[in-house]
C-alpha cells in the first residue's frame, strides 16, 4: 500500500443502464466515505440517471450484453450459460432482470439510484451534468433532479477535476 493518499477523484458516467451507472455511484460515494473529494460528471445516456422522470427507471441491458449470463441476474443458473439476447428482447424481461438485481442490491444496503444520488450530494460529492449532452438531448436544468450542482462544459469539468485522477466508467 502506498503512503500517499488519493485526495480527489472525478468520475465520468456516459452510460444510462443500471450496470453503467451504479459502479460510478459506489466509487464516488466510497471516495467521500474515505474523506476524498468526489465529482461525478454525467454525459450522454448517463444523463438518464439525473433525469427526474428516468432516475428510478434505469434497467439492465438484456440485449447485446454478451457478459450477461443466466447466473448474473440471480437466476441461479450456471454462470457459463449465456443469457440469450432473443429472450432479452421480450417485453418485460429487462425490467424483470433489473428488479432481481435491485432486490439483491437492497439486501446489501445499496440504495436505489435517486436515494444514492441524494446520499452522495449530502456527503458533499459533486454531481454535474454535461452541457453538450443536455443541448443534444434538448434537456433543461429543470428536467434534472435538484441534487445536480451544475451543468458544465468539458473545460469546466477539467477545471473541477484538476489535481486528481479522472475515471471513465
Amino acid at each position: 500500500m502506498s503512503d500517499e493518499k488519493i485526495k480527489k477523484v472525478s468520475i465520468i458516467v456516459a452510460q444510462g443502464s443500471l450496470e453503467g451507472v451504479y459502479p460510478a455511484l459506489i466509487m464516488g460515494n466510497g471516495a467521500r466515505m474515505e474523506g476524498m473529494e468526489a465529482n461525478i460528471f454525467f454525459t450522454f445516456f448517463g444523463l438518464n440517471a439525473l433525469h427526474k422522470k428516468m432516475v428510478n427507471k434505469l434497467t439492465v441491458s438484456t440485449v447485446g450484453n454478451s457478459a450477461l449470463n443466466m447466473a448474473m441476474p440471480m437466476l441461479k443458473m450456471p454462470i457459463t450459460m449465456p443469457f440469450p439476447s432473443i429472450l432479452g428482447m421480450l417485453p418485460g424481461v429487462s425490467s424483470f432482470a433489473s428488479w432481481l438485481m435491485k432486490n439483491e442490491m437492497e439486501k446489501l444496503d445499496i440504495p436505489p439510484v435517486d436515494e444514492f444520488l441524494e446520499m452522495i450530494s449530502d456527503a458533499g460529492g459533486g454531481l454535474y451534468a454535461c452541457k453538450l449532452a443536455m443541448d443534444m438531448f434538448k434537456l433543461e436544468r429543470e428536467d434534472l433532479i435538484d441534487e445536480v450542482e451544475d451543468v458544465l462544459t468539458v473545460g469546466e469539468f477539467y477545471e473541477k477535476a484538476a489535481g486528481g485522477p479522472i475515471i471513465f466508467t
Binding site: 467521500r32 466515505m33 474523506g35 456527503a123
Partner: peptide, 14 residues
C-alpha cells in the same frame, strides 16, 4: 447524512 459528515469529517463511517 449531512450531519454525519459535518460531525465526523473526512471519513465518517470509519
Amino acid at each position: 447524512t449531512k450531519d454525519l459528515y459535518a460531525l465526523f469529517p473526512d471519513g465518517p463511517a470509519k
